[in-house]
């Protein structure tokens, strides 16, 4: 490289490195690494099933014990979507509250507020609703 290209190269990296670092930190702080670990250990023996809804692929049970409400979601067969994110539907307006991501067949538990009317699973990449269950 000649002197001009060397200088351009140096300036590019001295600018790019901190700018990119700030941008990545800014984006990464909202990534929510703990989201999937929000799966709550539940003592089912002391919980009462308040509501239940299911179809051939997913079942959702709203459990309640004295301390909190737990929404237990069981994915029975693959959803065949690029990405599956579950939201709780609350209130008469069916406000959507993000619960977390479903990564495949299995059981998931989420602590929820009172007044959950159902769930909706969406594919955020395709911007499509995959399924909706109402209690």
């Amino acid at each position: 490289m000649d002197a001009k290209l060397r200088k351009r190269h140096k300036i590019i990296w001295i600018v790019l490195a901190p700018v990119l670092m700030v941008l990545l930190i800014w984006v990464a702080k909202d990534l929510g690494f703990s989201q999937n670990s929000e799966i709550v250990k539940l003592e089912t023996t002391s919980s009462t099933a308040m509501a239940k809804a299911e179809n051939e692929k997913v079942s959702a049970v709203l459990l309640n014990n004295q301390e909190r409400s737990i929404l237990e979601i069981v994915v029975k067969s693959p959803l065949r979507s690029t990405s599956s994110v579950v939201f709780a539907l609350t209130g008469t307006q069916e406000r959507e509250t993000l619960l977390g991501q479903l990564e495949g067949v299995g059981s998931y538990s989420f602590q929820v507020e009172e007044g959950v009317k159902g769930i909706i699973i969406k594919d955020p990449i395709k911007k499509q609703s995959i399924l909706k269950l109402e209690f």
Binding site: L5, I12, V19, L23, L24, A28, N36, S83, Q101, P124
Partner: peptide
């Protein structure tokens, strides 16, 4: 040297895309 711009775009593409969906 535009490859450096492509690199920055790709990093942001992954952080704003794939990592948002599957962290």
């Amino acid at each position: 040297m535009m490859v450096y711009l492509a690199y920055a775009l790709i990093l942001l593409h992954v952080f704003l895309g794939a990592f948002q969906q599957e962290t």
